[in-house]
Design a protein around this nucleic acid. Structure first.
Lengths: 207, 207
DNA sequence: TCGATACTCCTAACTATGTTAGATAAGCCT
DNA sequence: AGGCTTATCTAACATAGTTAGGAGTATCGA
């Protein structure tokens, strides 16, 4: 069996070190808070000095951006793993909300990075951001599949879902005070949208 | 007419300077972002050097804390100005939600300081925090007045309301894409809770 | 195998940050 | 006038992200 060219070897090693740095960054961020990421500390935990990190990432923000990309990828993967969804629209809605809230609650630092734009100068790169947008589009399609086509209802759904996640993380981290409300919230939303759709249907036929 | 004792004069002047510093801090924070508050810049805009600020606030966090206290006070005052509320529970709900969301949307930096705990080491002092808690208790009383007594429904209401505010600020700052949904959201919540209360009532009487 | 090249990591240093220590000058009180 | 308080300053410290430039090591072409 032939060995790979050494160029590739080096490239692989480079990528491996990048991954190691990112793992250490996640650990630090989970322990100390998202904004408390220190390049010197980070470098030390992977056996380097701070300037050496610049061989792998061109700035601290680039590290955040790579973490953002990882986070959205995890989100997309977990989202895909949801399928096939229950046939019953209401059950599918519940599953979707529960997935989102539990994904957020599982890692507060990740939630802050992905969904609260809280790092002073940081904005995700266009490439990273596109993944996130596609993911939201998938949610929209999901709702459309249930006959919920009004874009305002999509906005209301995202508000309700992120609101639950937000309150859960802010006011009961590690607990389930708002997670318990998910089924009820889904029912509330579902009944509302179906009623609303019926009303609009009637309004249209009688006009 | 007698002049005030000079001691008081000095104390007044001290408070006036504190207020001036806080005003400048708000301006800077609104322009550059909450986390971008720089003591040197702040000092310069009030005609001082950075260390002089320490005669007025014992740390940067103390400045944030004073701003937090001001923010919650503004919230409480604005909340009081809502009364008397409409008699119709649904209308009152709408007014309450609209008030909260518009208060948040009016000042993104203030929203971040009060409702998203985003500054690395900052937690509001006990004194400041108590005001905020009392304010939430007032919302709870409001709902109780409408016959919404279930604490879970209060949690659901806060999730829905903060969710709308959060989405509005994150995804359409300066616009009204989620603000437009407030009435609809209030109706959804109101119908849901009243239905739920009826169901529970029935459950109890038939048992 | 040798010299050139590329790569990785280092130390030193720059700028900016929040913060502390200590000095200076102005105003107040006795 | 002399002592006390207050407000403000400069100088300096620790820590942050970042840049410059060098040392050592592996890789590659001849």
């Amino acid at each position: 069996m032939l060995d790979k060219p050494k160029r590739d070897r080096r490239a692989e090693r480079h990528e491996a070190t990048k991954a190691e740095i990112l793992d250490a960054a996640w650990a630090q961020v989970r322990a100390e808070g998202l904004a408390a990421l220190s390049l010197r500390d980070l470098a030390r935990t992977v056996g380097m000095r701070a300037p050496s990190l610049y061989s792998y990432f061109e700035s601290k923000h680039a590290i955040y951006d790579a973490m953002y990309a990882q986070g959205t990828q995890q989100f997309v993967d977990a989202q895909r793993a949801l399928y096939p969804l229950p046939d019953e629209p209401l059950d599918a809605l519940k599953a979707g909300m529960r997935f989102f809230v539990e994904f957020c609650a599982a890692d507060a630092a990740r939630y802050q990075l992905l969904f609260q734009r809280t790092i002073p100068g940081f904005e995700p790169s266009a490439a990273s951001y596109r993944i996130a947008e596609e993911s939201l589009a998938e949610v929209a399609e999901l709702l459309t599949g249930f006959g919920i086509t009004d874009p305002e209802m999509l906005d209301l759904f995202t508000a309700l879902t992120t609101g639950i996640a937000d309150q859960q993380l802010s006011n009961d981290p590690g607990g389930d005070r708002w997670i318990r409300l998910i089924d009820d919230a889904a029912e509330m939303f579902y009944e509302h949208t179906t009623r609303r759709a019926e009303r609009h249907q009637l309004g249209r036929t009688t006009r």
